[in-house]
């Protein structure tokens, strides 16, 4: 019995193996291959279709069916302003190496925590709660996002849902603009030098929506999409100002991309000008 099982002198396929039985079956490989290819083609088609839909949605103007804005008495509106501080030793911003692209000239450093003499820049401040069911007109003027020196200007942007964002490329290189939202539609478009502006809008409210350039991986910025016009971004001195707020009780949120969110409750009376300062500690403290 054992002798029968020994291999022959044939260089391969010396004796019968389980695999041989499988391989000798008349399997219709052509049908299988064609089916797989057809499935892949369908998936590709679906992908292209999704992309087109995405582009349409993002390029569409603000919906004209939006409810009319709730009237606000301009004689009673209040203002909230203040300064955002950073507690502790300011982190040294890391230098960015832009040698990957010779068109990216000058020096660049990370903007994830920008502190000037204890003042914290690029904090998004907005009315998080207290506006009730009020609705607001979406501004017809676009907000501008510029790519210059292979960095975004501004680094943190506030925009109303449906408001147009006008994206410019002032560099002598191609950028791609790629938002990676949680609640809005994702898109990714390249913008060569001297090309027309790209105009987009974001339909849903979303705070600290990251935008990046995959050609220059250090290029990152954040778009904040809100439903009301009551928002601001702190300047290099940590200052902000929110005007035209109707009297009431509000929750003001201060959001920093790395340090997180802090909220404050505030009550404003008619024609009030209230100072609301905020401070952030270094992450982990």
């Amino acid at each position: 019995m054992r002798r029968l099982l020994r291999p022959t002198a044939t260089p391969d396929l010396h004796f019968k193996r389980k695999g041989d039985i499988i391989m000798n079956k008349k399997t219709n490989w052509t049908t299988t291959t064609v089916s797989i290819l057809a499935l892949c083609a369908l998936l590709t088609l679906a992908a292209c279709n999704k992309k087109e839909n995405t582009a349409q949605s993002n390029n569409a103007p603000a919906e004209s069916t939006a409810p009319p804005a709730t009237p606000i008495d301009p004689a009673t509106v209040a203002t909230i302003k203040g300064t955002v501080k950073f507690d502790g030793a300011a982190p040294k911003p890391p230098k960015i190496d832009m040698s990957q692209d010779p068109a990216c000239k000058g020096t660049n450093e990370a903007e994830n925590v920008v502190v000037n003499g204890g003042d914290l820049a690029n904090v998004f401040v907005y009315v998080k709660d207290g506006l009730g069911n009020r609705t607001f007109d979406v501004p017809t003027t676009p907000v501008v996002l510029e790519q210059k020196g292979c960095r975004y200007h501004p680094h943190v942007l506030g925009v109303m849902a449906g408001q147009t964002v006008d994206i410019k490329n002032a560099d002598a290189t191609t950028h791609n603009i790629h938002p990676t939202p949680k609640d809005n539609r994702e898109w990714n478009e390249s913008q060569p030098p001297s090309s027309a502006d790209i105009q987009k809008n974001f339909a849903r409210e979303e705070i600290m929506l990251p935008v990046k350039c995959n050609q220059h991986p250090w290029m990152k910025m954040y778009v904040n999409v809100v439903k009301s016009p009551f928002f601001a971004v702190t300047d290099k001195d940590g200052n902000y100002e929110i005007k035209g707020l109707p009297p009431g009780d509000y929750t003001i949120a201060f959001v920093q991309e790395k340090l997180g969110e802090q909220d404050q409750k505030v009550t404003v009376a008619p024609k009030d000008t209230k100072t609301v300062d905020q401070s952030f500690k270094a992450a982990g403290e």
Binding site: Q100, N188, E189, S190, N214, Q215
Partner: peptide, 25 residues
């Protein structure tokens, strides 16, 4: 992190054969 630096497929920046400027991602 260069996976989406060329945003289209199967073309590259709209072309089937042109080699784009090979910088960055």
């Amino acid at each position: 992190d260069a996976g989406l630096s060329v945003p289209d497929w199967p073309t590259s920046f709209g072309s089937w054969y042109k080699i784009p400027k090979l910088v960055g991602g």
